[in-house]
């Protein structure tokens, strides 16, 4: 390396460093001034009119549905309003009824503009100002809220509230004490000495078993097992049979109700058989009455024990006579033959 090169090397290094830092400084300045060099998107300039912008300032972001789409370029006083010049991404669609509102980015501070794109079918004409909604003064609203609370809670109300709170806390203490002692169902459930929990557990186990059985029954029904299952199946012969049986029953019932048929006529009371049956019934009734009153031979026989005994004795006598006759018949016959032969 020549002496001249060595002498200018520090100068070159210094020059490169200074140039690099100045270039970075220029880039930084351009970016923080609001020029979007990094994204390289096309920008559109819009104006918004506000009655009051609150703490809004230049370079504050502009959001659409939470997405940053631009920034506030300038703020100036107009005729009874504040006019904010906004630079927005050119591809953000704005409708004729679009509005813009000053919003807070966090409770710690910071403001931004929130654009409502609108729902009108017509687009926002070029150069038209977006109507702005007034900024919400959170501190003022908080102050009003505190005032309202102060008015709502008079000292007497606060005392009553405190008394209620005290009562509630005592109730809670009593409740927890009862639970600790094992009183009541909850206490029993929480008590390790009580069997309620075990019983409940057994009951639940039984219920689980029952549920399993029901599941099996349902499965059987689904599979078409049993009468119900067969009935529930759509294409089954049992259903058809039952249907036929019901049709037959319906036909039989119709026949019964039809006076033109014999049974129907019988049920309707139009048949001579009915009159005959009535006559027979009357006769039978008459006979039974006479029998009960002991009229006639049969009635006396039924109601009079002495007659019955006499009849029984007469039968016995007749049987005796017949037996005697049977015993003497050969002798008689022999005698007859003997004497006939003589």
């Amino acid at each position: 390396m020549s002496a001249r090169s060595q002498s200018i090397l520090p100068e070159v290094i210094t020059g490169l460093f200074v140039a690099a830092v100045i270039a970075l400084l220029a880039f930084f300045t351009i970016v923080i001034s609001g020029v979007d060099l990094l994204r390289g998107r096309h920008r559109a300039v819009r104006e918004a009119r506000f009655d009051h912008v609150g703490a809004l300032k230049v370079q504050d972001p502009v959001h659409v549905r939470g997405m940053k789409v631009g920034s506030v370029q300038a703020l100036r006083l107009g005729d009874g309003c504040v006019i904010a010049t906004l630079t927005l991404d050119a591809d953000v669609p704005l409708r004729a009824d679009a509005t813009v509102a000053v919003a807070q980015t966090s409770v710690l501070g910071g403001t931004c503009l929130e654009i409502n794109q609108g729902a009108s079918p017509d687009p926002l004409p070029p150069g038209a100002a977006i109507p702005g909604k007034p900024a919400r003064d959170v501190m003022k609203e908080l102050g009003e809220l505190v005032g309202d609370l102060r008015q709502a809670f008079e000292p007497a109300d606060v005392r009553a509230l405190l008394a209620n709170l005290k009562t509630a806390s005592e109730d809670i203490a009593d409740l927890t004490a009862r639970l600790r002692r094992g009183d009541g169902l909850l206490g029993k459930l929480m008590s390790p000495q009580d069997n309620t929990y075990a019983d409940l557990k057994d009951t639940l186990a039984n219920l689980n078993g029952l549920t399993g059985d029901l599941r099996l029954v349902a499965q059987d029904l689904r599979d078409g097992k049993g009468l119900l299952g067969k009935l529930l199946r759509e294409d089954d012969a049992t259903y058809d049979d039952l249907k036929g049986t019901l049709a037959n029953l319906r036909a039989a019932t119709a026949n019964l109700n039809d006076p033109s048929h014999g049974i129907g006529r019988l049920l309707a009371g139009d048949s001579p058989l009915v009159a005959d049956l009535e006559t027979v019934a009357a006769n039978l009734k008459d006979v039974s009455v006479k029998l009960n009153e002991g009229q006639g031979t049969l009635g006396r026989l039924v109601n009079d024990d002495a007659l019955a005994r006499e009849a029984e004795a007469a039968v016995k006598d007749v049987r005796q006579i017949i037996d005697n006759m049977r015993d003497t018949a050969p002798i008689t016959t022999f005698t007859s033959l003997f004497f006939s032969g003589l």
């Binding site: 520090p10 100068e11 290094i13 210094t14 460093f17 200074v18």
Partner: peptide, 13 residues
């Protein structure tokens, strides 16, 4: 001046 620029800038870098 140039020498001092180098000493101050690059020397402290």
């Amino acid at each position: 001046f140039l020498r001092q620029l180098y000493l101050i800038g690059i020397g402290s870098l």
